[in-house]
Amino acid sequence: MSNLSSSRHRDTAAEEAEDLDLVRARDGDGAAFTRLVHPLRRELHAHCYRMLGSAHDADDALQDALLRAWRGLDRFEGRGSLRSWLYTVATRTCLDIAGARGRRALPVDLGPSSDHAVVGDTALPNAWLGPYPDAGLADGPAGPGARYEQREAVELAFVAALQHLPGNQRAALLLFEVLGFSAAEIATMMDTSTTSVNSALARARKIVAEKVRSPAQQQTLRKIGDARVREIVAGYSAALERGDTEALVALLTEDVTWSMPPLEHWYHGIEAVTDFAVRVPLTGCGTWRHLPTSANGQPAVGSYLWNDDAGAHLAWSIDVLTLRDEQITEVTSFVAAAHFESFGLPASLP
């Protein structure tokens, strides 16, 4: 059998198995429904994160969406693909959740930067944008019509920009430019007109273009190369662990920013960031250890701070690094031990 014939045979067998599972699921077979949705869970979860800006909210939204899909499976008539129907359910679920609360933000969205370190900074009870564990997320676009790569579409700058859009514009942009659905398909999914979808897309593109720096991190990371990216991450970690100001500053751009949600203050420019780094993480907190990871399609580290009572370094923050020309231009430290589990990182280091 030729490779082409073998491939067609596998595709046909997979389609027949899916059709059979769909029949079984409609008859109440939960295992069959689980098999149907399993190949799409990862991309659906990423879509929910893009819509909501929180991995925790994405967990809840996906669970709710799949429950709605399971209960309403008899309404899926098979005219379109199961994938498009599941995205319809997931998008409407996310719009319901987003409509019930305000948008998520980063400290840079809420006020001006501080020109010197604020020791004893307090956490604000805002709905903050959160980091995204991107392990297993595909590198390329989701479909031939998609403009953004899958990992590019979870980068911090892009997801933060999405939070400035009304729900319908956010959904239209993601469905069209990230997932590759047509305007007509989106109109059906969102129960509106193609004209309304195109209008929402035009407004959304304008706002995102104003807020997202070019080029995307994925292009920058490919240009720098994996080996050099690992060196930069290792250098950042080592400088903090040694308390080495010069080594840390050498890694930073002149216009670097450092923010720490949920803490209120953030810093812009090499002088302000250096003052903060010297007075807080380098000398004011204690000793650090780090584990490399990846978040939002970007290099990141799990930062662990020494705790005398525990006699160990405890999970403190996920530091997401944005690079430009082999230097760090943004550090976003998501301060909360609760983030670590979703990244597969331990809660402490002995």
Rank of each mutant, 00 (worst) to 15 (best):
M1C: 14
L4E: 10
L4C: 00
S7K: 12
H9R: 01
D21F: 08
A25Y: 03
D27T: 04
A31G: 11
A31W: 08
L36D: 05
V37P: 09
V37W: 04
V37R: 00
P39F: 05
P39I: 08
L40P: 05
L40T: 03
R42D: 08
L44C: 12
H47M: 05
D57H: 07
D64T: 14
A65G: 10
D74H: 14
D74Q: 13
R83M: 10
W85R: 08
V89E: 08
C94M: 09
L95M: 15
G99I: 13
A100V: 05
A100N: 12
A100D: 15
R103F: 02
D109L: 08
G111E: 05
G120D: 14
A127P: 01
P131H: 08
Y132R: 11
G136L: 13
L137Q: 12
P144M: 07
A146D: 05
Y148P: 10
V154I: 15
E155G: 01
E155M: 00
Q163M: 04
P166N: 01
R170Y: 06
R170K: 15
R170N: 12
R170D: 09
R170W: 04
A171P: 04
F176P: 00
G180V: 02
F181R: 09
S182E: 13
S182L: 07
S182M: 08
A184G: 08
A184K: 07
T192V: 15
S193H: 14
T195S: 15
T195H: 14
V197R: 02
V197I: 14
S199K: 12
R205W: 02
K211P: 00
K211N: 05
R213H: 06
R213K: 05
S214M: 10
P215M: 12
Q217P: 02
G225W: 00
E231T: 14
I232C: 06
G235P: 15
A238E: 15
L240F: 11
L240R: 06
R242Q: 12
G243E: 01
T245V: 13
V249N: 00
M260S: 07
P262M: 03
H268T: 10
I270S: 13
E271I: 05
D275V: 03
V280T: 06
V280F: 03
V280G: 01
G286H: 06
T287I: 04
Q298F: 00
W306K: 06
N307I: 13
L314A: 04
T322F: 04
L323Q: 06
T329C: 15
A336K: 11
A336N: 15
A338Y: 10
A338D: 15
F340T: 12
E341W: 14
S342M: 03
P346L: 10
A347M: 07
S348K: 13
